[in-house]
Design a protein around this nucleic acid. Sequence first.
RNA 1: GUCCCCGUCGUCUAGCCUGGUUCAGGACACCGCCCUUUCACGGCGGCGACACGGGUUCAAAUCCCGUCGGGGACACCA
Length: 491
Amino acid sequence: MSNMADGEVRVRFAPSPTGFLHVGGARTALFNWLFARNQGGKFILRIEDTDLERSTEESYQAIIDAMKWLGLDWDEGPIVGGDYGPYAQSERRDLYREWAQRLLQEGKAYYCFCSSEMLTGMREEQKKQGKDPKYDGRCKLLLPDEVGHRIAEGQPHVIRFKMPQEGETVVHDIVRGDVTFNNTQLDDFVIIKSDGYPTYNFAVTVDDALMKISHVIRGEDHLSNTPKQIRLYHELGIEPPRYAHVPLILGEDKTRLSKRHGATSVGQFKTDCYLPEAMVNYLALLGWAYDDKTELFSRDDLVQKFSLERVSSTGAVFDYAKLQWMNAEYMKHRSLDDKVTLVLPHLEAAGLITSPLDDEMMQFIRQLVEVVGERVKVANQIPEHVGFFFTEDVDYDPEAAEKFLKQHYVGPAFKILEERLSALEEFEQATIEPVMRGLVSEMGMKARDLFQPVRVALTGTRQSPGLFEVMVLLGKDKVLARLRRARKEFS
RNA sequence: GUCCCCGUCGUCUAGCCUGGUUCAGGACACCGCCCUUUCACGGCGGCGACACGGGUUCAAAUCCCGUCGGGGACACCA
């Protein structure tokens, strides 16, 4: 029995619904998806919810949402179904029991009645003696009668796999080459827990076998589990799939990326309004490269160019700065309407606007976004760029005020400026600019000598979008009021 | 502790398999200059790495060994 008899590529992403989808998981899902699409194979989503304690409906939903947001569609799995279901492990209990029974009957597995407390004690003892913590296999010696008796009595028990103790097991890994494990390191691990659910290693193996998975692409942290699974395949008489263990995603300190390193859940990036195409592009480059220069890949490029052979074997630090740069690259390609949509929730969250927007406000925001342009690299940065449009009293950046508003000429210059601007019939860039530039040359200064103080007076800060655009959007009244206030306050 | 994986600029990486074309290329970040009313964008330039030690070889980032360093796995969690 071979899983690759028909040569069809079938890969899966198998998250457990015990939390939000992590960027590491997302990257694994992406590599699986890209490989499937590149090979014209099938991408399967399977939910590993055998840990009853920690699995939740919310997590399941969050994972589904994140996958959809990233555009990683699955050919078989929850919602879409498929010929190899069910696709949630909690619904596959009978299958696991069936296969465990088979192993039991063939003498390749046995019942174990040891308590967890006893096992923990044993492990500690072994560690103290400097030995590998391994189950000693004592229940393997139990007579069939005794086993039957204890089960009839209702004694809690698990089923263990009888691990061969001689020889070695080789994992043929596409990313790492052949990795050899000595079988003496492996022990009789539990395949069915006392609650009747399978353990991870057993469930994965049974499912991958039954679902005819051809390539297992997963995180490097699973590499040391692989020999156990391969032994299982052998005893089950099934050819194991091909493996590709991809490097872990790390935090700045080079340890596995976790919450304390910053945002790690895909959902968080989504609510921050990162662009999914930027996220996908960035994630693809974490542990994979096409050549020595290409960095921006459309989804189609990725599908066309992806290959497991070019996945690197070293862990990759998640670099928020580069993600942000990449997001900015993709923002440039978004339409104004898209940007407005992206930015709206953050304006609201910052308390700058309130939900039902009239047409006038909508139009205003459109103009704001246009004026702000490429300064916003990620949509959630919008408030810091446009906050001053929404307040009556701008907060002056003390240093900026000190440097630009306290110049001796500012008072008189503003006075004249106020007069001339208020005389303007049309308050447009075309009418404002001559006034500003005219004053600059009359007073024999450089443009910045007037523009920077005006900027600080209007926005409170030393950097902003183009001054004339800002003035037009602010409107004549606010411009005059702010100039006046600054003049009175500082000169 | 044991087993396994990994080790090229601060970070992501190309090059390594098939030694010479590389006093190691690109990108992000950082610094400087230019553009300019500021910032951002853009353009130009700069800083900056083959972990270390031995071999093999005419020649090593590339092959071998060792050391050191980092990470991961050692559950009735996945």
